[in-house]
C-alpha cells in the first residue's frame, strides 16, 4: 500500500517533468531554450521514475542497473545538449 503510494507519487512527478519538457520543446521560442527544457525532462523526469520503481525490484543488481541507466542518460543528455548548442551557435541562428 505504502509502496504503491511511493511509486504512484514519484512516477507521476517524473511524468510531469516529461510533460513539461515536451511542452517546453513545443512552445519555447528559440532552440537553446527548447534544449534546456528537453534536458530537464531527461535528468529529473527519468530520475524520479527510476526512484519510484526502485523498491519494486527484487535484487540489488537490478536496482544498480536502473540507476546506472539513469546516470548514462544524464551523461549522454548533457553532452548532446552541449554539442547541439555548439552547433546552434556556430550556425548563427542564435543571437544573444
Amino acid at each position: 500500500m505504502l509502496l504503491d503510494l511511493w511509486t504512484i507519487v514519484l512516477v507521476s512527478m517524473g511524468v510531469v517533468f516529461f510533460l513539461a519538457g515536451t511542452v517546453g520543446l513545443l512552445r519555447f521560442p528559440d532552440a537553446l531554450s527548447r534544449l534546456h527544457a528537453l534536458t530537464k525532462a531527461d535528468n529529473l523526469g527519468l530520475g524520479l521514475v527510476v526512484i519510484g520503481l526502485l523498491p519494486r525490484l527484487t535484487g540489488i543488481a537490478d536496482g544498480a542497473k536502473m540507476i546506472f541507466v539513469w546516470l548514462l542518460v544524464m551523461l549522454s543528455g548533457a553532452c548532446l545538449a552541449q554539442l547541439v548548442a555548439h552547433l546552434i551557435r556556430q550556425s548563427g541562428d542564435f543571437k544573444p
Binding site: 551523461l75 549522454s76 553532452c79 552541449q82 554539442l83 555548439h86
Partner: peptide, 8 residues
C-alpha cells in the same frame, strides 16, 4: 581536444 565531444 578539450571540447565536449572529446570528453565523452
Amino acid at each position: 581536444p578539450n571540447g565536449i565531444l572529446a570528453y565523452i
